[in-house]
Nucleic acid binder design. Structure first.
Lengths: 374, 374
DNA sequence: TTGTATGCGTTATCAC
DNA sequence: GTGATAACGCATACAA
């Protein structure tokens, strides 16, 4: 722990002391020009700035943060799968998480924050997130990263936004999408437009609030409209994955029990798994069974048959989450707290409707994101 | 700047002093059990741990970082486009940047680092990245974020990895993909297998090293094989975007000049723009003109015609970049420095070959990334 | 307008 | 084994 204190040999990376010495001022003055504080003589400022340039001085982040108590960092925790467990769909797609991150980064930037990413392996909800708390001004936690109980506890100790969760926990702030409205719309469409009555619901992991919410909303609406839904417990429970849904469906098909008219899935990847299983069994959607998803991942549009689904604004979820969190952190009075983002029914071919768009439609705007190598 | 120093009123977030007091030990001891340093009596340790639990103590990141000089943070700077300038293609794709981020996060986690994300608006290469330097132990800079000159300068002041760049700058470490090999393979295929002789090369932004490298490699190989390539300056220069390539191609078509047998593009999005323009003009690929891309974005596989292209391992690029950076930071002797990742020719329909795979093929592994809502 | 002195919460180096 | 205590680099209240 060598001392540079006050002496400032220009050994390693230069400190504020080195700049001060070089410019013949005190460190306080240097700090002032760097933070455009107070009044300084123009000549002094120039001298300092020059020294900064000459020494290539860059303020030490941690020191600054420690001193000011402000980190200008937002932590984002999300579920990361074991790398070897990604299906082609999941590897290919612009995944939900990726979109959220992109939206969050964008918003964070606008408020002058950086994003500190932490992937959490499912189940291992140990202390990764708690540690984040010490490194960031506030934390955004994606659903399933933490049990709701721990979310509530953490929220007391740190500004926290729960993203895409059930919306139930009284955690400081909840930002989520309108699952209910989306599933109601799909139920409406399938019953009223297509005249289906017998449904199955392919659920994600049983413990997942999102899955539960979607199933309940769908089931309730279908019943209200006079149809019936095989409960997911009876052979339609999966694990959110394409592969899981594939296996489940294959098993169900080989069981010989009569198939429903439509299989409604809690996510797009699962819907693709279902489609695949049907195809393997010589059945075709939507001719033999209708299939729908939830998310509107990019491939949904390009699949064959194109997937009827519910679009949720993933990227917006990220940016709104950041907005809410910044509101919490900076204690803005007018900041919105809980927010529910709208979802939208997207009708394509897999429910039996005619495919709406020609391939390539809407292809052209301007654009250059990641251009050279995406 | 209220003093808690030594006194430790358990007012706001608890500090190490609060824990020490609660456990009746010194802060040094607390620090020891938290970092599993030295030898301590089991009973003492338990007492401390209990206090930690009771107080919900979380170490203050900045303080820890300031004291130890280690941040355990990797900065990642990438180009972020103006939000409204993404075309459908670019929004759809698992974008290059997203994939890199995902790979980087994964690797960072393995080494115990977090990822600090910073999007940089193109052109505004001001000091965002320099500031990053102060917040992280090292920095990964994606191509085009910084002029090569500044990359070199920065590299002297901080561990730095240049990702997907030209490979030319003597920056500490370069991690990139094998553009040359990929373009050679495509040249080989088009000339030897299809017998083409007259080519055009659709370049990205003229200043882009990736584009230049690809064009040079392709041109050289074609000439070697006895063919010829219209230089991109003669009407085939675009700006990496789908829209740009579309316009360029349309203009070229209406000029009445004879078309080449094959149009080889520096990226997939541009290839899709070319295909679109051909279609609009009543031409069809590969019947009238063959078209190829570079990247293998997800849509490439689902397009009609499916796109012959060169696959580059985007996600791996991120993880390898992190590995290299950690090697630099921790000064590992056996760490590899510069690395060139392999590319792979992917033959599909747009070059005139029969479409190889049934849709959905290779769909199934297991998988759950972002499952519930991707 | 500028300088001095102190504290931010840890880690690590000494002694005991 | 454990306890004082000096850095770490910066921001800022208080003087000047």
């Amino acid at each position: 722990m060598p001392a540079s204190g006050g002496g400032g040999q220009s050994s390693g990376t230069p400190t504020i002391y080195d700049v001060a010495k070089q410019a013949n001022v005190s460190i306080a003055t240097v700090s002032r020009v760097l933070n455009s504080h107070g009044y300084l003589r123009a000549e002094t400022r120039d001298r300092v700035l020059q020294a900064v340039r000459e020494l290539h001085f860059v303020p030490n982040g941690p020191a600054r943060q420690l001193s000011s108590g402000i980190k200008k960092v937002i932590g984002l925790a999300f579920i990361r799968p074991p790398e070897d467990e990604m299906s082609a769909v999941e590897e290919d797609s612009l995944l939900f998480t990726d979109a959220v991150i992109r939206g969050a980064e964008f918003a964070a930037q606008r408020f002058g924050y950086s994003l500190l990413l932490t992937g959490v392996t499912e189940g291992d909800s140990s202390n990764d997130v708690t540690a984040l708390t010490g490194k960031a001004d506030g934390v955004i936690v994606l659903d399933r990263v933490l049990p709701e109980k721990r979310v509530a506890t953490l929220a007391k100790r740190s500004p926290l936004v729960l993203l895409a969760g059930s919306g139930k926990p009284q955690a400081a702030v909840n930002v989520r999408v309108d699952n209910v409205q989306g599933m109601q719309a799909i139920a409406q469409h399938l019953v009223a437009h297509h005249g289906f009555r017998r449904f199955a619901f392919m659920a994600g992991k049983e413990s997942s609030p999102d899955s539960t919410t979607r199933e309940e909303a769908f089931t309730e609406m279908v019943r209200f409209l006079g149809g019936q839904v095989e409960p997911s417990e009876e052979g339609w429970s999966s694990d959110w994955t394409t592969a899981g849904a594939f296996k489940t469906t294959r098993d169900r098909l080989s069981s010989g029990r009569p198939m429903p008219e439509a299989i409604v899935c809690a996510s797009d990847p699962m819907a693709l798994g279902v489609l695949q299983a049907l195809q393997d069994a010589g059945l075709r959607a939507p001719r033999d069974v209708a299939v729908t998803g939830f998310d509107d991942i990019p491939i949904a549009r390009h699949w064959n048959p194109s997937l009827t689904t519910v679009r949720q604004p993933s990227q917006q979820l990220g940016s709104v989450g950041v907005e809410a969190l910044v509101g919490l952190i900076e204690d803005r009075p007018n900041a919105q707290r809980d927010r529910v983002l709208p979802t939208q029914l997207v009708v394509r071919a897999s429910c039996g409707c005619p495919a709406p768009t020609a391939p390539g439609l809407g292809l052209l705007n301007t654009g250059s994101w990641g251009s050279e190598s995406q």
